[in-house]
Simulated assay, not measured.
Amino acid sequence: MQDCHILITRPEPENTLSCERIVTHGWTAVPLPMLDIAPIEDAQQRAAIRSQIFDIDTFQYVIFVSKNAARLAADWLDTCWPMLPVGVHWIGIGQGTTQALLEAGIPAISNPDIQQKPYLNG
């Protein structure tokens, strides 16, 4: 794997971090982010998101699919909810996503942990 070239397609900031890890192994990282994650500027779209966030206490489970989703949702939750609603189960799809939620003060569990939580089965 000496002359290994690895195409990294993750969005930022994960793309840069992944490239840095690849380079530490002596390989060549080729950055090509396939998604550009940016805040929504449209007022109607922002209002629709805000409405869903205000209704988040009506959900039993909220699943976050990426670290970026966790960070952005944490900002929305912080804006709309001074304290997190009770009775919602917060789930990160992977360990990194779960860690981002925990760092934001959201008591999340990771997707593989679901099998270990009997109240989440069924």
Rank of each mutant, 00 (worst) to 15 (best):
M1H: 06
Q2T: 15
D3R: 07
C4E: 14
C4Q: 13
I6K: 07
L7R: 04
L7N: 05
L7E: 09
I8H: 01
I8V: 15
I8C: 09
P11T: 07
P13E: 08
P13K: 02
P13D: 05
L17K: 15
S18H: 00
S18T: 11
R21S: 12
I22K: 04
I22Y: 00
V23W: 03
T24E: 00
T24M: 09
T24P: 01
G26A: 04
G26S: 08
G26P: 02
W27L: 09
T28L: 07
P31D: 05
L32W: 09
P33I: 00
P33M: 01
L35W: 07
L35E: 04
D36R: 12
D36I: 08
I37G: 07
P39A: 02
P39Q: 09
E41N: 08
E41L: 02
D42R: 11
D42A: 10
A43K: 09
Q44K: 14
Q45S: 12
A47N: 14
A47C: 14
A47G: 12
A47R: 15
A47F: 07
A48K: 05
I49F: 12
I49S: 00
R50P: 01
S51L: 15
I53D: 09
I53W: 09
F54C: 14
F54N: 15
F54A: 14
D55N: 14
I56G: 02
I56K: 08
D57Q: 06
T58E: 12
Q60E: 00
I63S: 01
F64V: 11
K67Y: 04
N68W: 07
R71G: 02
L72A: 14
A73F: 12
A74F: 01
D75Q: 13
D75H: 05
D75F: 02
W76E: 10
L77I: 02
T79H: 15
T79N: 14
C80R: 02
C80V: 06
W81A: 03
W81D: 07
P82Y: 02
V86N: 01
V86K: 03
G87C: 04
V88Y: 04
H89W: 10
W90N: 08
I91F: 09
G92S: 13
G92K: 10
G92Q: 11
G94K: 08
G94A: 10
Q95L: 05
G96C: 08
G96A: 15
G96E: 13
E103Y: 10
G105L: 10
G105D: 11
G105Q: 07
P107E: 12
I109W: 11
I109D: 07
S110E: 13
S110H: 05
N111A: 13
P112Q: 09
P112I: 04
I114T: 04
I114S: 03
Q115W: 13
Q115P: 03
K117V: 14
P118G: 06
P118R: 02
P118N: 10
Y119S: 14
Y119R: 13
L120I: 05
N121C: 07
N121T: 09
N121V: 12
